[in-house]
Amino acid sequence: MSISTNPWVWIMGIGMVSLFSFIYKENAAYRFFEHVFVGAAAGYFLQMNYVNILDRAWIPLVAKGRYSLLIPIFLGLLLYTRFFKRYAWLSRWATSFMIGIGVGISSFGMINAQLIRQASAAMMPFLVKDKLGVILWTRSANNTLMILGTLSVLVYFFFSYTPKGPVKEVTHFGRWVMMLTFGVAFGNVVMGRISLLLGAFERIFGTWLGLL
């Protein structure tokens, strides 16, 4: 492969290298392209939401006479009263409406999918046996660890009581489980960040410079 002759690819490459130059030192080129990116992100997000307003509110209202849509349009516009000190309190109506939706749609699933299903998934036998009645020690040990570990973490987060005596030991175990959990998370963070770097390198060294 050879270096790209496409001007768009050059815009991409120069911008990316400038953004990466931040790791050496903050500089004017980085700041310029950082601003370009922030503007692009805001402009793109804005127009995608404009499309939502157009398709879901304006066209059905004007073309199909769905006047009930005046309610969300009115609430949406109220959000902008926060730029006028005197009327800023009106924006609370819209905020409250959105919070009502958040509460209304998430509460059931929170209990059903995240609490009950997860709690029932943690209800497993301490001893696992195969069809012939032989104890499967590895699975049994894992199950025991999962049951005790989940309970210990829950005890650790029980803030209404200062742990003492054996309960304190349980919270220690809960903390160890969480430390291992966070270690696993960190390992995944490293892997994820390297993937992002590889994606960027592929664009710079492959698409632009033609070295890959």
Binding site: R117, Q118, A121, T181, V184, A185, N188, V189, M191
Partner: peptide
């Protein structure tokens, strides 16, 4: 990749 560990309990269930 970053989100994988948090999602594992839901895979197990």
């Amino acid at each position: 990749t970053v989100s994988v560990p948090a999602a594992i309990p839901f895979v197990n269930s």
